[in-house]
């Protein structure tokens, strides 16, 4: 009995710990979120007539929304794998490589700290806007830092005994890492993928400063441009609906990732 009571109170205590975060998140994130949903169901901010799903249909059928969505997805599909692969390799090298290589850690962390304004200038000197290449490279360049940080942190959490055991089994070098290290941090990898996907939706400032206009070439016209331009046209509904669509997309991805994570974690 006493044990049960203790268990119960332990659980409750743990739940109490959630309260500050929940309260804050509720006020500053949930409420705006609900507002956005509300705005997506009215005709405009000023007349506030309820129009049901009309906005959703309109946005979905909008050719520029489709173009933007396509470009954003393309960015994810192409850049994320490259980013993650690169991040894994770099993290492994930084964690287990020779000392001199390890000292290059800063090179990969710095990109995420440079303010966008100066980077856009430099990028403009190197790239032209003919292809999507500048935006892709910029995205990868900027996001490698966080991925590397998270992955290296995860790698340090691997207990050294496992390595000892593997070594005794005869594994070494790249094989060792492929078999042991990577699978062990798979949950973190999946999480990093998720995070990068979230960040891919934030690539706006960079693109905007690089092209210097609200209307970049059609290959770089992403969801953020769609949203930003509609904002300037006082059409908040387009923003609201397109972000809900994005979210649904991301939820699906999240669930998939979670499922994978559950499968791979022990």
């Amino acid at each position: 009995m006493r044990f049960l009571r203790k268990l119960k109170s332990w659980n409750m205590k743990c739940i109490y710990l959630l309260i500050p975060s929940l309260a804050g998140t509720f006020i500053f994130f949930v409420i705006p979120f609900v507002r956005v949903i509300y705005y997506s169901f009215i005709d405009n901010q000023f007349r506030r007539n309820f129009v049901g799903l009309d906005n959703y249909v309109q946005t979905f059928q909008n050719e520029f929304f489709q173009l933007a969505l396509q470009n954003s997805l393309l960015l994810i599909v192409i850049c994320i794998p490259v980013l993650i692969l690169l991040a894994i390799i770099i993290s492994l090298v930084l964690s287990y490589g020779i000392k001199t290589l390890r000292k290059t850690r800063a090179a990969f962390i710095l990109p995420m700290l440079i303010p966008t304004a100066s980077v856009a200038e430099i990028w403009r000197l190197v790239f032209t806007g003919e292809t999507v290449l500048p935006v892709y490279t910029l995205f990868i360049w900027k996001n490698i830092g966080i991925c590397v940080i998270l992955l290296t942190a995860a790698l340090t959490a691997i207990e050294p005994e496992i390595f000892e055991a593997a070594k005794m089994d005869g594994a070494k070098g790249i094989k060792l890492h492929k078999r042991i290290s990577v699978p062990l941090i798979l949950p973190t990898i999946i999480f990093t993928i998720l995070l990068s996907i979230v960040n891919s939706f934030r690539v706006f400032k960079e693109s905007y400063l690089f092209y210097g206009t609200n209307y970049p070439p059609s290959h770089s016209y992403t969801l953020q441009f769609y949203m930003n331009n509609n904002f300037l046209k006082l059409d908040y509904q387009a923003l609201a609906t397109s972000s809900v669509y994005t979210m649904i997309l991301v939820i699906i991805l999240v669930l998939v990732c979670f499922g994978l994570q559950r499968r791979y974690s022990r």
């Binding site: 405009n44 300037l232 006082l234």
Partner: peptide, 30 residues
């Protein structure tokens, strides 16, 4: 644009020009 969308009440009147993009948007969006 931000102020208009957020229902800002600091501004009382707008003095605009028909050549500004935002003029048309104010009219269309009510």
């Amino acid at each position: 644009a931000f102020r208009i969308l957020s229902g800002d009440n600091e501004i009382d009147i707008y003095y605009l020009h028909s050549q500004h993009d935002i003029s048309d948007n104010i009219r269309r969006r009510g």
